[in-house]
Nucleic acid binder design. Structure first.
Lengths: 208, 208
DNA sequence: GCCTATCTGGACTGTCAAGTCCACTTGATG
DNA sequence: CATCAAGTGGACTTGACAGTCCAGATAGGC
């Protein structure tokens, strides 16, 4: 049960860990901007200031690096969403979440969802990547579901509502909105999709 | 205003047009299955039974071929949707549309939306492709909008409803649902997203 | 201070894909 | 049937990329 799996069999010194992290960060940024296929290891080398041998010292191959990028982007998203998702306990909170989302999307110049982009590119090609991304989405959905479940416990959300399905629909709206926003260079699709999703949740709420 | 744009300056005989169409069909299928970057011209050659020189006889370069694939996929989708979108005039019609969508997604083995996949891969890289895809989505949204507008004219949909925004939210739900379905290999996200979207439309309908 | 594993640098190889080139065939039109 | 543009076949060039290799630097344990 120790750290002897084939992907990371070596002990890492502090310096090594820092170099490794630098590579993943650079790769995540480049891949978000240009996609997996358009991001060559040479680009990653240049952006992280690291040589070829270091890449292959820390990662078996490009696919292994991409798996780490998936994990990192999942972390980034869940970290960024945490404050909102933990406070997801009322209609105004949902609306605040919506507004933060739209702001974030504009800040990222409507380049889509880091996980959604990866999923679209990798799901049909790599079964392993697909599964990891499915897990990532599942975790994200789970956080939303927890927020809704809390609303339900305290009676704000009706007992007949299904937090799991509601969260899944919400996440679908988010991903679709982000994809259309990316394509049209406008955050309007995201706004409409989120408004619809919140409206849908509101429909299951009890009157105050 | 005649056919003298740089992309198609030559006259096409029947045989030439057939060869050209065969190339686009094969490329569209391959790209839907594996993405633009993973589809080499050699694959397209093999699938369409055509040689290198023919590809470059009919298309300036790979990018030009991809633009034609975008146009073809747009046609395919609008054609497939036409029967449903033309009859989009009531709640049961919306539900029939939903069911057809889910069936189609399963038939395509949950491989996502042909336009959505292209948009995700190309929007950040090629401004021209992004614009064409934005136009494609806009046309699709327009068909949905027309259906909703007809519902509004005959009084089924409330006067305060905004068909344009409603259609945009609906399309976002479709795209997000298809993306998550592709990632999770389950049509459930699509179903939940579509149910939410129809529910949203229903909320703007007048009582019968 | 020495030993060893971790870490780093960069040259090198093999493969594969985009795009070029030219010789050849087909068929419509005079 | 002569002509020539449209159409076809496939070898070739060029470049980019993933992945290999080995020599050398660094630094913690004894």
């Amino acid at each position: 049960m120790a750290a002897n799996r084939k992907s990371k069999p070596r002990s890492l010194t502090a310096r090594g860990a820092a170099t490794r992290a630098r590579i993943v960060e650079a790769a995540a940024d480049l891949i978000y901007a240009h996609g997996v296929e358009q991001t060559s290891l040479d680009h990653v080398m240049a952006a992280s200031g690291v040589s070829k041998s270091q890449l292959y010292h820390y990662f078996r191959d490009k696919d292994a690096l991409v798996l780490d990028v998936i994990a990192r982007q999942t972390e980034r998203i869940l970290d960024a969403q945490r404050p909102h998702l933990e406070a997801l306990d009322s209609l105004p909170a949902l609306k605040a979440w919506r507004n933060a989302f739209v702001r974030l999307n504009k800040a990222a110049q409507c380049r889509g969802c880091p996980l959604g982009n990866l999923a679209s590119e990798l799901a049909n090609d790599s079964e392993l990547a697909r599964k990891r991304l499915a897990d990532s989405f599942s975790m994200w959905r789970d956080r939303i579901e927890n927020g809704l479940a809390k609303m339900q416990e305290r009676g704000e959300l009706g007992a007949s509502a299904n937090p799991h399905d509601l969260a899944l629909a919400l996440l679908s709206a988010v991903e679709g909105g982000l994809l259309l926003a990316k394509t049209t260079h406008s955050s309007r699709p995201l706004e409409m999709a989120l408004d619809m999703a919140i409206d849908h949740v509101a429909r299951h709420m009890n009157a105050p």
